[in-house]
Design a protein around this nucleic acid. Structure first.
Lengths: 190, 190, 190, 190
DNA sequence: TGCTAAACGAGACGGTACGTCAGGTCTTACT
DNA sequence: AGTAAGACCTGACGTACCGTCTCGTTTAGCA
């Protein structure tokens, strides 16, 4: 039942090759064939681990996310949001951005995959913002009743940017967005 | 000297086949090969008109957009936004939604195409919201200084939804979003 | 120094699976992978015993041949040849025929293997005919000077048939061939 | 209805590459992939013309055969047979021999293909010998009643040799075989 | 020139078979 | 009892083909 254990070096090589390919050529340049070739690994070895291109990308991205999920707690809502957005946007301007674009491209082609992504990645990112809001709410900062819509307002523009113009995601834009969301969240109830 | 004029029936057949394919099978089911086959037209005839799959989709979508760009003017900001969002979301749940998803998928794979889409489609949609805001501003309703970020907050969540879960774009969600943006736009300056 | 002895049940399972596969699906259906799978034995266990597919087949066939090498001695050349050909052809219409075809296919792809087959199988089959001829020669029946060519005329048509049309190898054909070879062998010298 | 005509240069390149591969590496070295690669042609172009490896080889061989089917007519049976056998064996020692081996290997794996080969190649080769025999028969040389078995005795040993030892097919062997078959064909009826 | 039909090179797709190798477990014989 | 050799199973691995597909281009001929 045991058999030869999977070679961790192979796992790493696949992930590494995926990162390189996405970074170099974007989603268009990524193929199962190409990943295998670049990583010096057989196609079998790739397909044994992942059933599709999307899974490879999702896993590569998850590996990133595992190491650094920002969860600032400065005691000030706007500051927290700003920190999170700046860090997140900074990442989106690099390799993780390309990975996210690839992920989105896959999700657009496969509803099932989209659901998997939501459950794997999106949920935890949303939870991070949720916690920031909840903390601020317990401090009495937040008056807006609905967390969900606030979270959509935080991430929606990011994906909008990723799809059509990733260069938009600057620190300045993070500041504007943080201000807007904070303003809304703390607006006096009518 | 001019030669045989292009057959408009061919144009229509291509557009029609594109719509059908997107409607039936989503972006994954769309290919230049398939469009030609379904429309009963040669591949050459397609490539003579469009340089890529993206262009076909963009054109098919532009044809839609030309006919119905909502620009409500009820005299009330929230009402205007709500109307626009409801109409837009309704469309996104149908064929234009699938087209937009296809468009996004293409844009994610080709930065140049993304720019073209921005200039062709996105700009005019944003302008529509900009006009709504400007009218409200001239009525004294809007206090928030920055139109751009408000527009991002209107459209960002829509694309976010299109990528990961199109069913999210309900009338109820339109209402929540309209409320949120209106609240922010009309929040008292500090 | 000694280690665990090889399990004879494994030997049997391999041979049995090989026979079944050849019988069911012919040479095309035979693969080392398949033999291992069908016999419920690991690939290692097969490769430990045989270095190639050809060796497996050769061994399976040798097991057959060991049990029944016809060597009729009726006191009449034609009768002897007829008996031998009928028995041989009868076998060729069954599993041993499929094995011989597989053997030929391997031999055609590997000259070394062809030589091994010649030394293992072909030589003894030829010897059997050689003895029939020698006995007839000692009775004064055979006048033709060259045994080798006579033996080629006995077996050549069989392989010709195995390659292109195994159904040809009927009793009637055995009779015609026995007659022809006998006629030649006993033809008056000029 | 017309479409672009097939490029004859592609046909030639495929045939040429096939010949080279068979000559260099034998049947084992021949693959559809390899043929395409060596000929500098796409796999599609090969599959468009031939449904299998066997068809490629059959066609390459047919092209050979078309140019030189020996049909000697010296007025003497043995002389005719000898000429035909010498020429045929000479060819078998070269590229056509390797092609014939490849053909046989395919035929052994696919009964349908074997039938096709029989109808395409084998039949005409047998007919050539049949004509020689018929001419001799009309001269009163041949007394043996059955052409078919005589033809089997001519070709059987050749295929026997091709399968297990192609070096056997020398001029000396051709002479022995010609003598044997002539002797049988002209043996006095009993 | 527009248009259809089909060929073409390129290369990804998902899969199979080859022969090898790495981790375990189990069986024998020699200490 | 302890140890070492080797059989054996499971399953991973790189290599090489398989036959199919789509892409974007090209070539011929009809309208």
């Amino acid at each position: 039942m045991t058999g030869r254990p999977r070679d961790p070096a192979v796992d790493d090589a696949i992930r590494q090759a995926t990162l390189e390919l996405v970074a170099d050529q974007g989603y268009r340049g990524v193929s199962m064939e190409g990943i295998a070739a670049r990583s010096g690994v057989s196609k079998q070895a790739v397909y044994r681990r992942y059933s599709s291109k999307g899974e490879v990308i999702l896993d590569a991205l998850a590996a990133y996310a595992r190491t650094r999920l920002p969860n600032p707690d400065t005691g000030d809502l706007r500051e927290d949001l700003l920190t999170l957005l700046e860090e997140t946007f900074a990442a989106q301007r690099g390799v993780p951005g390309a990975l996210n674009q690839a992920l989105a491209a896959e999700a657009l082609q496969d509803a099932d995959f989209a659901r998997r992504v939501t459950e794997t990645l999106i949920r935890s990112r949303r939870a991070a913002v949720g916690e920031i809001l909840d903390r601020a709410r317990s401090r009495g900062e937040v008056t807006y009743p609905d967390n969900d819509i606030l979270i959509d307002l935080v991430f929606g523009p990011m994906w909008y940017g990723l799809v059509f113009d990733a260069t938009k995601l600057t620190d300045a834009y993070a500041a504007e967005l943080a201000t807007a969301v904070t303003t809304l969240a703390t607006s006096p109830p009518n």
